[in-house]
């Protein structure tokens, strides 16, 4: 089996690169982790458990993600801050179809102008992952926050 990396390890690498891109402020790279027509949604456990369709952010396709990035760069007004993602190793829940289903828990710390990192959000990613452009991409990433409450505002994706 030499030369073949196991699927969970490949997804783990994808997740870690994803987290680092955001944490490093490389927001323009964030949409590149997704397939062209991918769905990205931030919701909460309460809404997810009840199949509520609205999200805190809802991007249908990479173009909407790019708009989120250009708005955070040029339109929206907020206090400068950054994240630190801690992402669990993934659990592959289904790999029988054309897309892989996987999930991973996460914690995101946020450091605002006070200079103190604080837990901003914990939750899980619920992903559908596809092979595209010679690598893995998210075909769908649902961010399910454990808490119902977002402190102050959310402008940087999770």
């Amino acid at each position: 089996m030499s030369g073949v990396t196991a699927l969970p390890a490949r997804i783990d690498a994808l997740n870690r690169l994803y987290g680092h891109a955001i944490d490093d402020g490389d927001y323009e790279r964030w949409p590149e982790f997704f397939a062209e027509d991918a769905l990205y949604k931030i919701t909460t456990r309460w809404n997810y458990d009840r199949a509520m369709p609205a999200g805190l952010m809802l991007c249908q396709g990479r173009a909407m993600m790019e708009d989120r990035v250009s708005a955070l760069r040029t339109a929206n007004v907020y206090e400068p801050h950054h994240y630190r993602h801690l992402i669990d190793p993934p659990v592959v829940t289904d790999e029988s179809g054309s897309a892989i289903s996987a999930t991973a828990g996460f914690a995101v710390y946020r450091t605002m102008q006070s200079g103190v990192p604080e837990i901003f959000c914990t939750g899980k990613y619920v992903d559908r992952i596809v092979e595209a452009d010679g690598g893995l991409k998210f075909g769908e990433r649902i961010v399910v926050c454990d808490g119902e409450r977002i402190d102050t505002m959310i402008v940087i994706p999770l």
Binding site: A54, M57, L58
Partner: peptide
């Protein structure tokens, strides 16, 4: 359309997020 436009409002809304921030400022 409602669900896409919901990106405008709420704590992550294109036009609502600043209202949350300005209260603290």
């Amino acid at each position: 359309m409602r669900l896409r436009q919901a990106n405008l409002i709420g704590p992550g809304g294109y036009i609502a997020m600043e209202d949350g921030a300005v209260v603290g400022w």
